[in-house]
Design a protein around this nucleic acid. Structure first.
Lengths: 187, 187
DNA sequence: TCGTTGAGTCAACGCCTGTTGAGCGAATGG
DNA sequence: CCATTCGCTCAACAGGCGTTGACTCAACGA
C-alpha cells in the first residue's frame, strides 16, 4: 500500500504538507496562536523538522503567505468596479488560505501588517490607474477598503448576517456604491 | 509635593492607571503581545497587583474593552447614513482606545471576536431598524462593514493613503454609496 | 558493497508567560 | 495608641514557547 518514494519527492511532499498545515493554522488562529508544535502535529511531523526546513517561525510564515501576484489585467474605465468586486473576496468562498492567513494576522503581527499594506497598496494602485481626478487615489483606497470590510466580516468574523448569502447578491448591492466611488467618468 | 491621598482614592487612581495602560497596549499590539508585565510596567506597578485587582488577563481585557453602549438615538429614514458615518470611525481621530483595543484583537482573540460580533450586530440592528425591504438586514450589514473596512484601513493598518485626509472628505465620498445601500425609500 | 548523504526523530535548552502566596509598611478606625 | 486592614511588592512556580544538537536509519552514488 504505502508506496516507496524517492528522496527528493518525499522531501517535496513533506514540505508541502507542512506548508499546508501552516497556512490552515495561520488562517484559523493567527500568527501567535499557531504554534510550530501544532503545525508539525497537523502535518504529522516532528517540530524540529519544521525548523530544519524553514529556519524559523517567521520564515515559515513568510513562505505560507507568499502569494503569486497573479492578475495583471489592465481593466477599462469602469470594469474597475467588477475588478474590485472580483478581487478581494466577493467570489466569497474562494479566497486562498494564504490570503486568509495574512489577513487574519494583519492587525496583530507586524510582518503580516506590512504584507497587508503592500497587497492593499498594489490593489489601490491598480484601481487608481483606471480612475481619473486628483482624488483618484483616495477613492481607489476607499473602494479597496470597502471590499476589505466585507471580506473581514464574512470570512474572518463570519458574521451570521452574511452566512450563505450568494456572492452575486452582495456584488449587486455593492455595485452602485462602488460605481459612485469610481467616479463620474462613465456616462 | 506628592500629596498624600486617602486609601480609597489611591486605589481608584491606580486601578484607573492600570486600565488606561491596558487599553493603550491592547490597542497598539493586541491581546497576545500585550503582556501583563508590560501593562504593569506602563502603569508603574507590580504585575502581581494587576492580577490582584482584575483576577486574570482575560478579565482585565474584558474591563478594558467594556464600552458604554451610549447612543440609543432612533434615526429617521435616511439620517441612517449620517448615523453610520458618525458611529464607526469616520469622525476619524475619535475612536476611543477601548474600541481600538477590541478591534485590534478581533481577528485573533476569540473573546474579542465575540465582542466585535456583538457590537457590530447591535449596530446592524440599529441601522436595519431604519431600513425597509426584506434584505434590510443584509444591506445594514454591508453598510456597517463598509465603515469597518475604512476604520481598519485608517486606524489599525494606518494606510498612508488615508493619512491626514479630513474626515468630512471621506464622509462625502462614502455618502452616495451608503445612500444607495440604505435603499430607495428616501425621495 | 560500502561510505556518505539527508530525511526525520528525540530530548533538552533557555526564555517568557500568566499566575500565586508570603510578606512589608502605611493608612485606618476604635 | 494599638490592632487591623489593605495597597503594594518580591520571589517564585509551572507550563508553553521557539529553537538546537546529537542521533537513527533508509536511500543514494560510486
Amino acid at each position: 500500500m504505502g508506496e516507496v518514494l524517492p528522496r527528493a519527492e518525499r522531501r517535496r511532499r513533506t514540505e508541502g504538507r507542512i506548508l499546508d498545515a501552516a497556512r490552515s493554522l495561520f488562517a484559523e488562529v493567527g500568527y501567535e496562536r499557531a504554534t510550530i508544535r501544532a503545525v508539525a502535529g497537523a502535518a504529522g511531523v516532528d517540530p524540529a523538522l519544521v525548523m530544519q526546513y524553514f529556519g524559523s517561525k517567521q520564515k515559515l510564515f513568510q513562505q505560507a503567505v507568499r502569494v503569486t501576484p497573479a492578475d495583471g489585467g489592465e481593466p477599462g474605465a469602469d470594469e474597475v468596479v467588477e475588478h474590485v468586486l472580483g478581487t478581494l473576496g466577493v467570489k466569497m468562498g474562494e479566497l486562498p488560505q494564504s490570503s486568509l492567513a495574512m489577513l487574519r494576522s494583519m492587525l496583530t503581527h507586524p510582518e503580516a501588517a506590512a504584507s497587508a499594506r503592500r497587497l492593499l497598496g498594489e490593489q489601490i494602485d491598480r484601481v487608481a490607474g483606471s480612475l481619473s481626478g486628483d482624488d483618484a487615489r483616495l477613492r481607489a483606497s476607499l473602494m479597496t477598503l470597502v471590499m476589505l470590510g466585507v471580506t473581514v466580516g464574512h470570512q474572518l468574523l463570519e458574521l451570521e448576517e452574511l452566512r450563505g448569502v450568494p456572492p452575486e447578491e452582495v456584488a449587486r448591492l455593492l455595485r452602485p456604491g462602488l460605481r459612485a466611488l469610481a467616479g463620474p467618468e462613465a456616462p
